[in-house]
Structures are given as structure tokens and as C-alpha cells.
Simulated scan of single mutants.
Amino acid sequence: MSTETDTDLFSDIDLGWEHLKNRLFLWVIFAASMFGVVMLALLLFDVATDFYVGLTEYNISLVDFFTRDGSRREELSGFRGAIVASIMLMVLVTILSFFVGVGSAIYLEEYAPDNRITRLIEANLANLAGVPSIVYGLLGLAAFVNGIGMGPILLAGSIALALLVMPIIIVSAQEALRSVPDGVRNGSYATGATKWQTIRRVVLPAAIPGIMTGTILALARAIGETAPLIMVGAVFINRMPYGPFDRFSAMPTTIYNWANEPSQHFIHLAAVGIVVLLTFLFVMNAVAMYIRHKYETEV
């Protein structure tokens, strides 16, 4: 009796239409994926074309480009100050965000009680990771540049970027700590180790590859951000910064300023700068992938 009922139930389903819907859905998601890939390829092709034209037709010397600072004169413009400023930014952002971010993740995962307040904090951290970057620039402008009178210096930009990447570092560090099996912790406790000894000698060494991967990817996002730096006043500066209290113009803001110039020479200078910035991004992402691959291979 039940067999006949099941047969009648499935006989009402048009399997041909179901297969057609599955194929249509597959093509839709494939087209959506290819749209992003094609747009990225076109963007890279356009940048590579402008880069090649700048080197051949506008005689942009890579040696001069890497050894000169910015200038209002197109034939004297270089990228040295912007590269140095971006490197100094990343060093300061790492110092300001890494230890606070990892410490916060350790507290939330290992010490904080599982209650409503902890869950509320974690939910807010996840939301902060998706806040537009210009909001952090406005915060840096109001609180640090104007609020306490720091002015548009490199330290103010570093604080704004550190606030931007800190939620990302905290969330990625939490995920890395969660990936460590509880059996490892319990085994450490069974040998008489304290909670802090277990975290420092057992949990953190196992989670460090994941923490480092998340941190590098967060810094790779920060190095390409333009809006927060513009908001804190990182406008065109034609000299190289020598400390955290100097005014600066990082790679993204220099490219932005060059792209706004009417001269085609500046447009091609911006293309060369984009290639340099993309190289930094690719290297940082490659390091993150290498750390992740090495960790997975060892596990």
C-alpha cells in the first residue's frame, strides 16, 4: 500500500523540469562567477596597457620612479616617499592592532564566560569587520586629527587603519583558536599545567599559523585603503616621511592624486604606481597562502 502511495507521489513531479531548473541555476552562478573574473581581467589589462605605454611612449624610468619623491612636475615625480610611507604605516598598524587583537581574541575564547554579554561583543565585532572604511577615516579625523590635535600625521593614519583591521584580526584569531581541539587543552591540564601555561605553550603555537594568515590578509586590505587616509589628511606630500609624526602620502593616496591630474603623463604614472601596489598585495597574499599551506601540510 505504501509503495503505491510513494509511486503516485513521485509521478506528479516533472523530473525534466527539475533537471532544467538545476542546469539554469548552475549557469546563473557560473555566469556570476565569470562576471567578476572577466571584470578583474579587463581591469588588469587596462592597467598593464597604461603601464606599458608609460614606459615606452612617455619614457617613465623605473629607476627614477623608485628613487624620487612626489612632485608637481610630471617629469620629476617619483614613488619613493609613498612606498616608504606605506611600509611605515604597515609597521605601525601591525604594532597597534596585532597584540590588542590577538589578546582580545584570547580573552573572548579562553577566559570570557559564555553569556549574553560575550555573545553581544562577538556579534558587534563581526559587524565592525564589515563597516565601510571611510567610517574609520571619519573617526580618525574627529577623534585624533582634530579631537586631540594630532594633525594629519602618519601616526593618525596608522591609528585609523589599525581600528579598521582590528576587528578582522580578532575574528580570524578567534577562528584559529577555535580550531585547536579541546583534547589538546585537556591533555595539557592533565599534566598539571595552568590555564595560562596551556594557552602560551600549547594553544597559541597551534593557532599561530591561522592567526598570522588572518593578520597578513587584514594588512593587505589596509595597505590598499584610500578613504581613511584621505579623511585624516594624507593629501599630496612631495617629500618622504622620516617618523610617525611627519606628514605623509601613502601609495593609494598618491595614485589617487595622480589619477585626478589632467595630464596623461600623470595617468601613466598612476598606472605604474598601481602595478607597484598590486605587487605588494600579491606578495602579502602569497605569504598568507604559503603559511596556510604549510600549516595544513604539517597537520
Rank of each mutant, 00 (worst) to 15 (best):
M289I: 13
F280I: 13
A286F: 10
F282T: 13
A288Q: 08
L269D: 04
L277S: 03
F266C: 05
I267C: 00
I267Y: 01
I274H: 00
A288W: 07
V272S: 05
A270S: 10
M284T: 04
L277N: 00
V275W: 00
I274M: 09
T279W: 02
G273Q: 05
T279I: 14
M289P: 01
A288E: 09
L278T: 10
Y290I: 12
L277V: 08
V283S: 02
R292T: 15
V276K: 00
A286M: 08
A286Q: 07
Y295I: 12
Y295R: 13
L269S: 06
A288N: 06
I267Q: 04
L277P: 00
F282P: 02
L281P: 01
Y290G: 10
F266S: 03
R292A: 15
E296R: 11
M289W: 11
V275L: 10
V276N: 00
A288M: 12
V272H: 01
R292Y: 09
I274P: 00
Y295C: 14
L269E: 07
M284L: 14
A271E: 03
I291V: 14
A270M: 07
L278Y: 05
M289C: 09
I291G: 12
K294F: 10
F266Y: 07
E296L: 14
T297R: 08
V275Q: 01
V287Y: 09
T297N: 09
L269I: 12
R292P: 07
F282Q: 07
A270K: 01
I291Y: 04
I267K: 02
V276F: 07
V275R: 00
H293F: 12
R292N: 13
A288C: 09
L269R: 02
V275H: 00
V276Q: 02
G273K: 03
I291E: 06
F282C: 08
V283N: 02
F280N: 03
I291F: 05
F280V: 11
A270V: 12
K294T: 15
M289Q: 14
L277D: 02
V276G: 01
A271V: 05
V287G: 06
V276W: 03
M289E: 15
F266R: 00
L281A: 15
I291R: 04
F282E: 05
I274T: 09
A288L: 08
F280Q: 03
M284K: 04
A286R: 08
F266G: 04
V287C: 13
H268M: 09
I274R: 00
H293R: 13
E296V: 14
K294M: 14
I267G: 04
I267F: 02
N285G: 11
T279Y: 01
V276Y: 03
L281S: 15
I274L: 07
V272K: 01
L278S: 11
Y290Q: 12
Y295P: 06
N285K: 11
A286W: 07
V275P: 00
H268Y: 13
M289D: 15
M289F: 13
H293I: 12
E296K: 11
K294H: 10
A270I: 11
N285I: 14
A286G: 14
A288S: 13
T279Q: 05
R292L: 14
V276I: 10
L277F: 03
A288F: 10
H268W: 09
Y295E: 15
A271H: 03
V272D: 04
Y295F: 15
A288T: 10
E296Q: 13
R292M: 12
V276L: 07
